[in-house]
Amino acid sequence: MHKIPESVLVVIHTVDLQVLMIARADNPDFWQSVTGSKDYADEPLIQTAMREVAEETGIIVADDQVPLSHLRDWQLSNVYDIYPMWRHRYAPGVTKNTEYVFSLQVPADINIVLAPREHVDYRWLPHREAADLCFSPSNAEAILQLPHYLHDVKA
């Protein structure tokens, strides 16, 4: 079954803008935020975001520890070329993906449990350092926009 070329990017952060970065199992030099494709075409994006966060980090949104209100849809999407090394996962001829940006504020002491088939390491970094570590330009840009986005939400 081919991947759907619609995905979420979830920047997980603490109130003081420490950002969770995770290293990919298939390339440990590739650090990123939580990302993942829809499981089916009409899966709501918020559900995709919640599922991917749970699968990749063990964080369950909508419980006492992380309320659903802390998962924010930025109403922002990026369209980018799928890296050639990952195009085989998509239907023949699919070369572009649409990525929808979310952020999730979590407590600083939250427990992270990585999915070992997907990620091999994690670290918390100040948002600028996290952006510098990203291999994905759209991921880095979202992290850099985090303080501005959060300020706009509060205003």
Rank of each mutant, 00 (worst) to 15 (best):
H2T: 09
P5V: 01
P5S: 10
S7K: 04
S7Y: 14
V8R: 09
V8T: 14
V10Q: 01
D16S: 03
L17A: 15
Q18M: 03
V19H: 06
I22C: 01
I22Q: 03
R24T: 05
D26Y: 14
N27G: 02
N27T: 02
D29G: 03
F30M: 09
S37H: 11
D39F: 15
Y40M: 06
D42N: 11
D42C: 02
I46Q: 15
A49H: 05
A49Q: 09
E52V: 00
T57A: 00
D64P: 00
L68K: 04
L68F: 06
R72F: 06
D73G: 02
W74I: 08
W74G: 03
Q75R: 06
S77D: 14
V79D: 15
Y83F: 12
R89Q: 14
R89S: 15
V94M: 11
T95S: 14
T98C: 08
T98Q: 11
E99M: 08
V101A: 15
L104M: 08
Q105W: 09
P107M: 02
D109L: 04
I110M: 01
N111G: 05
L114Q: 07
E118R: 02
H119A: 04
W124V: 00
E129G: 08
L133E: 14
C134M: 08
A140T: 09
E141S: 05
E141A: 02
P147E: 13
P147L: 01
H148L: 03
H148M: 05
Y149E: 13
H151Y: 15
D152F: 07
D152P: 00
A155R: 13
A155S: 15
